[in-house]
């Protein structure tokens, strides 16, 4: 079936809610363009690691492999990308090495879940603990970064109201991510490889019967997906923050899984979910920085909330999403089960 029609059919509520949000944003823009543009741009920035992590998770799960090691993949990739940047100053090389680290950990996860048939959740936990330990062990205080990616405004498009500030004045990794969302969507639903991937995740036995190599598919997909988590890590150190701190991923790899579920294992829907998470955080952060005179009286109470409670927001949102607000979801049928050839 046409995935776009499926999308509309099962997600009318979400699509309509998104439309209402767009109307609200345009209305707010007429009142205070600067703040709206700042919030939107920061929503997009905050959504980048989430959507990359979610893409990594959904490619894995569409192939039948649960990946809760995204957090670790992001963290170690962020660290290595940072180190490469410190020692070579070459941002492209640093990005590629981050992606490579993510892919290597993805291969390791595939090895654990396909070949060793370790419970996939334990396998992911091993990756997380390993990444935490390795970054802690090799981290040295006092390393200074050699710059980060700078924004490249796209001539013409960058001047469009609202959209220009949000989409067309970004650094390269953000553009790359936006492109990747559509590439993965196309790959998953319109190519033979994508079809085989979904078959392997839904019914590996049937896929095997028609000659698809289940093990090869899982190895390949989980490894390639790992490079996306690696890109998320590289994004954090090379574009968003510019330096590395211990445990800097701060649970984003796990929040990405909620984004994936909220987006029903569909890249474009997941991106909508990631933007929603980004928007919630960006809005709250903006409120913290504004002084009382700038905030409408009806919203002043928001400013009284201690910052720790605002820090809880993405995690609370994740729990709410997982609790099925916005409808029950159905993951790929064979997810989590090791496949044993007959």
């Amino acid at each position: 079936m046409n995935p776009w029609r499926t999308l509309w059919h099962y997600n009318r509520g979400k699509v309509l809610a998104a439309a209402a949000l767009v109307v609200f944003v345009v209305w707010a823009y007429t009142r205070d363009p600067q703040i709206v543009e700042a919030v939107l741009a920061s929503s997009l920035r905050l959504s980048i690691p989430l959507i990359l992590g979610a893409l990594c998770g959904l490619i894995g799960e569409r192939s039948g492999v649960i990946n809760i090691g995204i957090e670790g993949q992001m963290l170690l990739a962020a660290f290595v990308a940072f180190l490469v940047n410190v020692y070579t100053g070459n941002l492209l090389l640093a990005t590629l090495s981050g992606m490579l680290v993510g892919a290597v950990l993805g291969f390791f996860l595939a090895f654990m879940s396909v070949t060793l048939r370790i419970d996939q959740i334990i396998g992911g936990t091993v990756i997380n603990m390993l990444a935490f330990g390795l970054t802690g062990y090799f981290y040295q205080v006092g390393l200074v970064t050699k710059g980060k990616f700078a924004p490249i405004p796209i001539p013409g498009l960058a001047d469009i109201p609202i959209l220009g500030a949000m989409f067309f004045r970004n650094p390269p990794l953000t553009y790359l991510t936006l492109l990747l969302i559509f590439v993965v969507q196309f790959w998953l639903f319109y190519t033979p490889w994508g079809l085989r991937t979904r078959a392997v995740g839904e019914h590996p036995r049937a896929a095997d019967t028609v000659g698809i190599d289940v093990y090869k598919m899982r190895y390949l997909n989980v490894t390639l997906a790992g490079s996306l988590a690696g890109l998320a890590g590289a994004y954090l150190t090379l574009e968003a923050v510019g330096s590395f701190e211990r445990a800097m991923t701060n649970g984003q790899g796990f929040v990405a899984l909620a984004v994936m579920i909220f987006g029903r294992w569909n890249p474009i829907l997941a991106w909508g979910a990631a933007l929603l998470f980004g928007f919630a955080t960006a809005l709250q952060t903006q409120l913290q920085f504004m002084n009382a005179a700038q905030i409408p009286a009806s919203l002043l109470w928001l400013k009284q909330i201690p910052h720790q409670f605002i820090g809880m927001l993405p995690y609370l949102l994740t729990i709410i999403v997982l609790a099925g607000v916005g409808g029950r979801t159905r993951p790929p049928a064979a997810v989590g089960q090791p496949y044993v050839k007959e």
């Binding site: 649970g251 796990f254 809880m312 995690y315 729990i319 997982l322 099925g324 029950r328």
Partner: peptide
């Protein structure tokens, strides 16, 4: 949450960890 909504405990407990860190810090 697991029993009544189907939210897998692996993610909810991880999220509750971050909530606990923020709450105790506060």
């Amino acid at each position: 949450l697991k029993v009544y909504t189907g939210a897998h405990e692996v993610i909810t407990t991880i999220m509750l960890n971050y909530i606990a860190i923020n709450l105790t810090d506060y």
